[in-house]
Design a protein around this nucleic acid. Structure first.
Length: 926
RNA sequence: GCCCAGGUGGCGGAAUUGGUAGACGCAGCAGACUCAAAAUCUGCCAUUCGCAAGGAUGUGCUGGUUCGAUUCCAGUCCUGGGCACCA
């Protein structure tokens, strides 16, 4: 009897569906276990082999936990708001809702073929009004909450208003724009009060910079800006200030850091989040602007101080200049008359540069002197004030004190502009490069001279505080998260602008549904497409929409109670399931999505809406499946293609070619001619052996690079079980690897070989009721042990090789015994659910192999008496000697030294030392 | 530029706690079965010297620690991911 995977897979997929095998109840005696995938954005290109990698892993794990006796929640849904659907709408005029619907249908059909155990009754879609009603509802919670720094938690705005009514605000209250008394508060106008409150709301509105493209009249995503111009049309892009919504995630910075101690994320993942949050401790320090300036710019009465942020106040005596971010608010005021023109030129240059360019391009040192000077607070020397793009306005105070002898960027800047460098660390500073250290002894440093820098740090701060020119300051690299987009395909804000005051809508009126628009282009003044709708504008609704991450910041909660129309998630449901037990997804979400969803969870927890404040107990990262692109080389201006080995002789253009018409590196030239009409008349210059060899490169898998492989084709040809196991067999889950279909045959052969343990071509059924031998039980239990441990740790590639070893060994032993085989089926079921279900029922079982218990490994079958010890002389293995496992050092030494090979290598010398590690090895040192 | 990860045969990878480098699989080679093919089975398969026995070299590169290093440390090169409006 043949292994006909197509029939088997169809049969069981239908059976599981009909019997509701995967439906999950919130009411069970079993302990809950929640396995979650990062839900996909349903792109128009459909699923490629990269998508299922994590889904297969989570599916295996879910089934494994089910066999281990858990009630497993394993849902799937779609992150269906987003930019690509809108861009597609712009190009084709098709409504994003329609294309999204279509794409989701394709995704679901493709996912189902792979045999995942999702409970589709719990599916969520972020673009569904029944879903985004609750996204808007949570937004209102954020809007109506503030972060109480005394209690370190979010509280309703009413509590803050009460406080203002009773006590007003003093400087101890973070964020307050001014100090006021209770009486003054009462006298504020509504707009003034709203303005103060806006400084506290967790979702707030403020002005911020966006990528502005004048020619397109629209705001662009970073992704849409390539080399400083718009991707569409290649128009110039500049930064522009616009009113935006933000989430006050910075208030949660410390809790986001602390929370990392309570979760199982990889150390590198935690490290990335810590670096993103970027907590640093230092000081803010005021520099007086030199009085010369007042005479130059006499209109300004009093020169302000420049406040810099530094993590190294100990290096204060090494300050040779100050640098302001070009966007710093004091730049205009500081610039002297003769520097006006130079500064203006520099500012227009900076406006065209992205933050990324500004940080990455350290080879070109740019900057401009303002003409102004500050006064050093201790030496009273004149310190020139510069502006430069390497100082970013968003970090610290947007101004730094430059210490060239200790900071490499400052050093390069000083060298480039010939600014004299003060040395405060003696011989540590060579004059060729900066010496960034905290261990050097300070010289030439006034009251700090003679101290080690590390010790001088607090002394310096104390002195600055005492003089009233500085204070300790904790700083975060993380900024508040931009939360609005001038786009159509996202959640509308349930907010109206009444007399310039953002006014939250009543939650009973939710959802505020996304209205239909005629065109998807921008509104006037760079507003979103919603601004083109007269009725929307008349009602004074906010015209921007929420960003992609809004819906994905809480979807894991909705799965617990997906149909609830009275709450985002019933408290009983979230208390039953609790945190996500294991969350699986790519590291590309390391900082964005994970931080946002962690923040939302903390807010919901603070407001007592859920019982946990970290969403994900354990995080498993899968690597990216990369595409292996192939290239052909066309001689410029012709239809002649040159094989890779010969391209040096010609001037060629490099073109992507479909990987599916290339075998290894050899192009199928006739398939190539048929591939695109343009190439029908293609001619080739071939290698000596008559082949056309393609170039290759590893890149992101994408339709435009013609390097995608569709899982449907593979499932059709080899079956879902083979496909699932092959994806897992490729390598460690967390490692990125290029896709190569070549090896899939091996896994398919393995499943057929498994099949032949049950069925013989001639005799049909061959399994027996015989009692297994010790050797057979050893093979079985060795495998159970390995599979159990590897599955728990997501080491699926080694688990699969253990299955292969097991089936190879059972075949060699001609073991067709039911007792052994049925246990093998159970442990294999998570990996290959279809074939195991088929064989399990063939063995006579009525219930599904999903609902049995994972076999228990028993040590007694594995115990060994002896070991074939590797014996090395001076660390080089020379021979193996079979020794009793219980043998002690002295016995072993005697056995080893009497060995012929050992004696030969010892060349008659006496051993200095014999190292014996029980159960491992012996090493003789001569 | 900054942050994170990775670099082992022709290829994907294994060695999970410092202890026999190359498990398992692909590709390849030789053979068995077959009229033939497919399927299946058996053997070989890091490089190099050697008829062989056996030896030397070998985990990106340069050093270090150790009886012993793919594994630990320092430096360096290369590749991939992220860097705040792609998701």
């Amino acid at each position: 009897m043949e292994y006909s995977f197509i029939d088997i897979e169809q049969k069981w997929q239908k059976s599981w569906k009909d019997n509701g095998t995967y439906s999950v109840s919130n009411d069970s005696d079993k302990p809950p276990f929640y396995v979650l995938d990062m839900f996909p954005y349903p792109s128009g290109a459909g699923l490629h082999v990269g998508h299922p990698l994590g889904y297969i892993a989570s599916d295996i794990f879910s089934r494994y936990k089910r066999l281990k006796g858990y009630n497993v929640l394993h849902p799937m849904g779609f992150d269906s708001f987003g930019l690509p659907a809108e861009q597609y709408a712009l190009e084709t005029g098709q409504h994003p809702a329609d294309t999204t619907e279509k794409n989701i249908a394709t995704f679901k059909r493709q996912l189902d073929k792979i045999g995942f155990c999702y409970d589709w009754d719990r599916e969520v879609r972020t673009s569904d009004p029944d879903y985004y009603k609750w996204t808007q509802w949570i937004f209102l919670k954020l809007f109506n909450s503030w972060f109480d720094h005394d209690l370190k938690k979010a509280r309703p705005m009413e509590t803050l208003i009460e406080r203002f009514e009773k006590e007003g605000a003093d400087l101890t209250l973070k964020h307050t724009p001014s100090i006021f008394t209770a009486k003054q508060w009462a006298e504020f106008s509504k707009a003034e009060q709203a303005d103060v409150l806006m400084h506290y709301r967790l979702a707030f509105s403020a002005y911020g910079e966006v990528n502005w493209c004048e020619a397109l009249g629209t705001v662009l995503a970073n992704d849409e800006v390539v080399n400083g111009v718009s991707e569409r049309g290649g128009h110039p892009v500049v930064k522009k200030k616009m009113r935006q919504w933000y989430l006050r995630i910075t208030d949660y910075a410390d809790r986001l850091l602390d929370g990392l101690h309570t979760v199982e994320f990889s150390e590198s993942m935690k490290e990335m989040q810590r670096n993103w949050i970027g907590k640093s401790e230092g000081a803010e320090l005021d520099f007086k602007v030199h009085s010369e300036l007042t005479s130059n710019n006499s209109t300004e009465a009093e020169p302000k101080n420049i406040t810099v942020y530094t993590t190294r106040p100990d290096t204060i005596f090494g300050v040779d200049f100050l640098v302001l971010a070009p966007e710093h608010e004091m730049v205009q005021q500081l610039t002297t008359a003769d520097q006006q023109e130079a500064v203006a030129t520099y500012l227009s240059y900076v406006k065209s540069r992205s933050d990324r360019e500004r940080m990455a391009d350290t080879k070109h040192i740019t900057g401009c002197f303002t003409g102004a000077y500050a006064v050093h607070p201790f030496t009273e020397n004149k310190v020139p004030i510069w502006i430069a793009e390497y100082v970013l306005s968003g970090y610290g105070t947007g101004a730094i004190m430059a210490v060239p002898c200790g900071d490499q960027r400052d050093f390069l800047f000083a060298s480039h502009f010939n600014i004299p460098i003060t040395n405060i660390i003696g011989h540590h500073f060579t004059g060729n490069e900066a010496h960034p250290s905290k261990e050097a002894v300070l010289e030439n440093s006034g009251f700090l001279t003679g101290m080690i820098m590390r010790d001088a740090l607090p002394v310096a701060i104390d002195k600055m505080v005492e003089m009233g020119i500085g204070k300790r300051k904790v700083n975060y690299k993380m900024r508040d998260a931009g939360f609005s987009r001038q786009r159509y395909w996202g959640e509308p804000f349930p907010v109206k602008w009444l007399d310039g005051v953002a006014t939250a809508q009543d939650e009973n009126q939710l959802p505020l549904t996304l209205p239909h628009v005629e065109k998807y282009g921008p509104g006037p003044e760079g507003e979103g497409p919603l601004a083109n709708i007269a009725s929307w504008k008349e009602q004074q609704y906010e015209t921007s929409t929420m960003p992609g991450y809004a819906g994905s910041s809480w979807y894991f909660l909705r799965y617990m109670d997906p149909k609830n129309s009275n709450a985002f998630c019933d408290r009983k449901a979230s208390d039953y399931w609790g945190q996500v037990s294991v969350y699986i997804g790519g590291t590309e979400h390391a900082v964005g999505h994970l931080l946002y969803s962690r923040m939302w969870t903390k807010v919901l927890h603070d407001l007592d809406l859920i019982g946990f404040d970290e969403p994900f107990r354990r995080l498993v990262n899968q690597g990216m499946i990369q595409g292996s692109s192939r290239f052909v080389y066309r001689i410029k201006g012709t239809q002649t293609f040159v094989s890779y080995g010969l391209i040096k002789n010609y001037e060629t253009d490099k073109l992507h070619v479909d990987v599916n018409i290339v075998n290894g590196l050899e192009l199928d030239t006739s398939a190539f001619k048929k591939w695109k009409p343009d190439f029908a008349s293609a001619e080739f210059i071939l290698e000596e052996d008559g082949k056309y060899i393609c170039g290759s490169e590893v890149e992101k898998m994408s339709k435009s690079k013609f390097n995608t492989v569709n899982p449907d084709d593979l499932v059709l040809k080899y079956g879902a079980d083979t496909f699932r196991m092959y994806e897992m067999f490729l390598g460690p889950l967390d490692q990125s690897k290029p896709w190569d279909t070549k090896g899939i045959e091996g896994v398919h052969r393995f499943l057929r070989k498994l099949w032949r343990l049950f069925y013989d071509e001639v005799n049909g059924k061959i399994w027996s009721e015989e009692t297994p031998s010790a050797a057979e039980l050893k093979v079985l239990h060795k495998t159970i042990k390995k599979i159990d441990a590897d599955t728990e740790h997501f080491y699926f590639n080694t688990a699969i090789s253990a299955f292969m070893v097991c089936v190879n060994e059972l075949s060699d032993l001609k073991c067709y015994k039911k007792v052994v085989l049925e246990q093998l089926l159970v442990i294999l079921a998570p990996y290959a659910p279809h074939i195991t279900e088929e064989l399990w029922h063939a063995l006579g079982h009525e219930i599904s192999v999903l609902d049995v218990t994972f076999p228990v490994f028993e040590e007694k079958y594995l115990t060994e008496q002896t070991k074939d010890y590797p014996v090395s002389i001076n660390g080089k293995t020379r021979t193996n000697i079979l020794i009793d496992l219980n043998a002690e050092q002295s016995e072993v030494e005697a056995l080893v030294l009497s060995n012929e090979v050992v004696q030969k290598w010892m060349e008659g010398k006496t051993p200095k030392k014999i190292i014996f590690v029980k159960g491992k090895m012996v090493n003789v040192v001569v």
